[in-house]
Amino acid sequence: MAEQTKEYRATLKPEGVRGKSIRKDELREVPHVTSRPNAKYAWAAGVAMSRFLDELKEGRIVGRKCRKCARVLVPPRMFCERCYRQTDEWVELPGTAVIETFAVSYLDTDANRIKEPILVGVVDLDGAPPHCGFMHYFDEMSPDEIHIGMPVEAVWKPKEERDGAITDIRYFRPRRK
């Protein structure tokens, strides 16, 4: 078997590895087919998230409390995945938070380059235990000012423009005294 091992040692050299890099712009000569997927989806929000979205429309952030582990779950769910039991009650939160973490993004959703960076991150909501929050944008602050632990507050869309989505909150801004 030693022979094979030696032989193999030779095969993992460059000449042993076959194939070549072909990129999109070099495709013309390679027979291929292109096709476009056209499936459409309706993603259900579910019981807990539907209530959460309804409350956002009213300008309120709510969580769902598990009395056993005493956590207020945000994003809310009808069951506590740690205690593995049904959660007990809805709790309204004040809408203030601190920045848990953030990114200064020069990429949009399709990986296109953008000049003005998007400030985005995770908020750690007041009235909920640590690590209970969601992702959102930050604004009215510069990339130099933003930092972990910064106190922030939600800035809402005008009531008539809200449609029961996470984007009913426009962004979080530095908290005003």
Partner: peptide, 12 residues
């Protein structure tokens, strides 16, 4: 509540 959408992959 639900959200409508599609798979954004333009093509394969």
């Amino acid at each position: 509540r639900h959200r409508l959408g599609a798979m954004e992959a333009d093509h394969y």
